[in-house]
């Protein structure tokens, strides 16, 4: 059973630079275990020590977010395409900047943000 997995640049140090790798497994957990056997350390970047999917990792099965398909228990089939991506909001650049600004100890920014109607 072959499942194609697309790996983001920031995780390609685990796949010898490969953009896509192949794996097998009837569930996402099984697939990630299989990948980790071939690409040591990859699992630790995707799964938290508590056993859940890392907050800033999104995994898609055929372009659909696995968090809505049973997460790590999501069932996989031969020929499925898996995409791993960092979790980034649509307007990522503005968001990154805005979030960083909020980290500043500025009461002006905080005041504008804590707006409640």
């Amino acid at each position: 059973m072959a499942i194609e997995v697309r790996v983001p640049t920031i995780l390609r140090s685990y796949t010898g630079g490969a953009k896509t790798v192949e794996g097998a497994g009837e569930t996402l957990t099984a697939l990630i275990d299989d990948l980790d056997a071939k690409h040591k350390g990859l699992k630790g970047r995707l799964i938290t020590p508590e056993g859940g999917l890392h907050r800033f990792v999104n995994i898609y099965v055929n372009d659909e977010d696995v968090r809505f398909l049973g997460a790590l228990d999501a069932k996989l089939s031969d020929g499925d395409s898996i995409t791993i991506l960092p979790a980034v909001a649509g307007g990522a650049l503005g968001f990154a900047a805005a979030a960083a600004l909020l980290g500043r100890p500025s009461k002006h920014l905080a005041a504008a943000v804590s707006t409640k109607g």
Binding site: A98, L109, T115, G117
Partner: peptide, 10 residues
């Protein structure tokens, strides 16, 4: 002042 659309409940 920033309105911060990503976290602003409005």
């Amino acid at each position: 002042k920033m309105l911060y659309q990503y976290g602003n409940p409005a």
